[in-house]
């Protein structure tokens, strides 16, 4: 059986996050993962009696010099030290060739169509949890510079608490402007963040994200 845990749950298992840091919808998964891991950790490892003797006997048997076909096979597969000498002037062209190969084999980035979710590919990302209290809303999402202002790319989920919507989104390091979109048409600022004029008669919420740090 293969179990794939949510990335945040994996960070929880690694001790990087506390249970309280996780969105409520991941709590059950985190507890299940913790139980599973705890059971594995506590399972006593019992080695069969006589294992030591059998291992040592096998080692002694293999230590004797092979002969004939076994020697040939042994010479072929046995590990050995290989020394490679290279000259500095060969390194540049070799790296260039490798880079060219990688670039040529990399598929071109597809054109982003309107409404298509955009996946952030920045080398460093920070998980940010968005929360909006919107009682009576049927649908809430967060749109911003990090997802090309898509109103569908980052939906928030209704939590157990009435009217509280949340989503955890991986944002690339940098400056972001965003707003919540309620029911697909109403743009709402994040009450927990500063705002700037958006140039369209409304305001955008602002967030600066650094490696491991969310400014706001």
């Amino acid at each position: 059986m293969t179990t794939v845990f949510h990335p945040l749950v994996k960070r929880f298992l690694d001790g990087e996050l506390h249970l309280a840091d996780l969105p409520p919808e991941l709590h059950a998964e985190a507890r299940a993962a913790e139980r599973l891991l705890g059971a594995v950790d506590r399972a006593a490892v019992t080695l069969p009696a006589g294992l030591d003797a059998r291992v040592m006997a096998e080692v002694r048997k293999r230590a004797t010099a092979p002969s004939g076909a076994r020697r040939w096979w042994h010479g072929l597969v046995a590990s050995r030290e290989i020394r490679v000498r290279y000259r500095l002037w060969t390194l540049g062209p070799a790296l260039a060739a490798a880079a060219a190969l990688v670039l040529l084999l990399t598929p071109a980035r597809p054109v982003v169509e309107a409404g298509m979710p955009v996946v952030a590919t920045a080398p460093e990302s920070v998980f940010v949890r968005f929360v909006l209290f919107a009682p009576g809303a049927h649908q809430v999402s967060v749109a911003g510079t990090f997802n090309q202002w898509s109103v569908t790319a980052a939906p928030l989920a209704l939590t157990g608490a009435a009217g509280v919507w949340t989503a955890t989104v991986a944002l690339p390091v940098g400056q972001h402007q965003y707003a919540f979109v309620v029911d697909g048409r109403r743009w709402v600022n994040d009450p927990a963040a500063p705002t700037v004029d958006d140039g369209f008669g409304r305001r955008n919420s602002v967030m600066a994200v650094g490696a491991g740090v969310r400014a706001l």
Binding site: Q148, W149, Q177, G199, F200
Partner: peptide, 24 residues
């Protein structure tokens, strides 16, 4: 480009989008 896309997403008028981009 981002500002223009934002204007499109917010259903701003063409004139307003261009003005916002000019301001940027």
């Amino acid at each position: 480009v981002e500002k223009a896309i934002e204007g499109g997403a917010k259903a701003a008028t063409p004139e307003r989008i261009v003005a916002a981009v000019q301001a940027v």
